[in-house]
Design a protein around this nucleic acid. Structure first.
Lengths: 190, 190
DNA sequence: TGCATCTGCCTAAGGCATTTAGGCAAATGT
DNA sequence: ACATTTGCCTAAATGCCTTAGGCAGATGCA
């Protein structure tokens, strides 16, 4: 019998693809072994356990999103940058629902600190430079943006906005307009 | 041996409490049976299967949230109503993390349509009456509010905002201020 | 009160996922 | 060509989900 050529990287990649096909929480060591036509126990030489596998998929997703986002915001500023960044977020979730779900996996603090999630946060702050906010308002704004992006995308993913007019993309555009306006007039608050 | 007095309602209630203690996805038929000091198979007379149990917990959580929200917005309007409604959302999630997680469970369309989620949506629209938006802007605004509330609360729950200044409650207040401003000036967009 | 029925919880058993321990064989280097 | 490493295997324990069928406590009716 020829060897299957398993490595942690291949398993993670295949796990990510599987997640997009069948859903992240359906990704099990067994299902992945089936994909490779290999006995379940074989995977344990490459991956510590089920949790480890899922964490790797999560880190892959975070890195992919951060890469795309970095590409998107390069050379843009202000609303352009905001929109590009937000669209990356939304498009990624729509293209790769399983990976997006994986990216929401709670990570322990050290893992999170070493993940691409950090790059994400930095990019959000970079975008806000175009709106000239100083601390602590910048942090408030980072949290607002994160909430809107994540909230919108996950409600959309769970079908909250489908089957009702107007089209979700329209609302998305309107929401981004609103955020831009809000950020430009941030100081003018009650 | 005295009977344990199991009913679907008691199981759901106990399941909800268990969810808050150990996390919604740790709630299993086995764990629940252990709580009652009863054999696992006994639960299957009251609950169809594991999925059914989880759905019941989700519906309980949605109903509880809607009840609290209805109480909170009664007799309020404008920013008062917005804040009260949003605080219910956030407080519920902080008090009952397991139930809140349950409320995010994807429901099949008919179940969702019969759930208290509908009341929630109606209340959101009721709050927006104080801001005088007409369709389709009202729908866009409903989606924005839902996204912010859900997004903020789930990022907060997964620890996104802890361990960094300023305090999360400050950002929350600031976010609500922003939303209020945004809604009051909704028409004035580019 | 005594009996029949219903209902609640039981035991038994099959299926699938996780994980560890230990073994054979294919790949690799000398 | 041989020794070592590495990759994948079989075997086995544990835990959760679920169904089938049985006994006894609770309930209703004569």
């Amino acid at each position: 019998m020829p060897r299957a050529g398993l490595t942690p990287e291949r398993l993670t990649q295949a796990g990510a693809e599987l997640a997009d096909e069948i859903g992240f929480d359906q990704v099990t060591v067994s299902a992945l072994a089936r994909q490779f036509g290999v006995q379940v126990a074989s995977l344990y030489s490459h991956v510590r356990n089920s949790q480890d596998l899922k964490t790797r998929i999560a880190l892959l997703a975070l890195a992919e999103m951060a890469d795309r986002a970095a590409d998107a915001v390069a050379g843009r500023a202000g609303k352009d940058a905001l929109t590009a960044f937000a669209d990356v977020y939304r498009d990624y979730a729509r293209e790769h629902p399983g990976r997006y779900a994986a990216a929401q996996l709670p990570l322990d603090p050290q893992t999170a600190a070493a993940s691409a999630g950090v790059r994400h946060a930095q990019m959000t702050r970079a975008i806000l430079r175009g709106y000239d906010l100083s601390e602590p308002d910048q942090t408030h704004a980072v949290r607002l943006l994160g909430s809107v992006f994540h909230g919108y995308v996950s409600l959309e993913a769970s079908g909250g906005f489908s089957h009702s007019a107007p089209d979700s993309s329209e609302s998305w555009a309107r929401v981004l307009d609103s955020l831009d306006t809000l950020l430009r007039n941030w100081e003018a608050q009650p």
